[in-house]
């Protein structure tokens, strides 16, 4: 039963998963970081106190975090047709993936930025920095290590989400495991896809930890 592994399919599926996870990690960071920054700086006692902004962002983030991922997938695949022109395949799958992971990462960013010593922010303000300069030159650099390790966690989550999104039409290793493994009673395919997913997680974790450690100057 291990002899019928269709390597061509496996490699194509691996490529699709890497593509889905890569694209969605990139956009997750792109949306998550500004959202996380907004959540922090607009809060009470912070550098740009704006309660209604804080409430609005927090509410949106919480709603997206509360909806189970599988529901997001079902709702957002149609939206993908509108945004990227197709509701099938890995590109379409990135839409629910980003929608699920960006709010999650925004909260991680928020926590990381809140960890930055308030005294350092105050010192920067006392030297005449603008709020923008404080964000770019103090908050983000001081939190880089935590931001990277948070992105690693998010990326690992995205790998497992991508397997789920795959099953409902996104392609990738999850889809291959389901169709060519589970449904075709081919345990070899099933196991191989699983092993590859585990290896991807390990690789991401390893790279993320390495960068995070390099950047930690504490």
């Amino acid at each position: 039963m291990f002899n019928e592994i269709d390597w061509a399919t496996i490699w194509q599926a691996t490529g699709e998963t890497a593509y889905m996870v890569g694209i969605s990690t990139f956009f997750t960071a792109l949306f998550g970081v500004p959202l996380g920054i907004l959540l922090v700086v607009t809060d009470t006692g912070q550098i740009w106190e704006k309660h209604w902004v804080q409430k609005a962002v927090a509410t949106v983030v919480n709603i997206f975090r509360a909806v189970p991922f599988i529901i997001l997938v079902l709702f957002l695949f149609p939206l993908a047709k509108f945004l990227v022109g197709t509701s099938l395949g890995p590109t379409a799958a990135t839409i629910p993936l980003i929608a699920g992971a960006a709010p999650f990462y925004a909260r991680i960013v928020e926590t990381a930025l809140r960890e930055v010593d308030k005294g350092v922010v105050e010192a920067a303000r006392s030297m005449g920095s603008t709020r923008f300069q404080v964000v770019v030159n103090v908050l983000l650099p001081e939190a880089t290590s935590a931001l990277i390790s948070g992105l690693t966690v998010t990326c690992v989550t995205l790998i497992s989400f991508s397997a789920m999104a795959g099953v409902v039409g996104g392609g990738g290793l999850g889809d291959a495991a389901f169709r060519f493994g589970f449904q075709s009673f081919n345990d070899g395919m099933l196991v191989t896809c699983g092993v590859l997913l585990v290896m991807m997680v390990q690789l991401v974790q390893w790279i993320g930890d390495w960068f995070s450690r390099q950047l930690d100057k504490r």
Partner: peptide, 22 residues
């Protein structure tokens, strides 16, 4: 103007408040 004024008023702190990443 306050930012310019602050450049001419230095401040040091009990816990130093240096940037750890620099």
């Amino acid at each position: 103007e306050l930012r310019y004024a602050r450049q001419k008023i230095g401040m040091i702190f009990q816990h130093f408040n240096l940037l750890q990443s620099r």
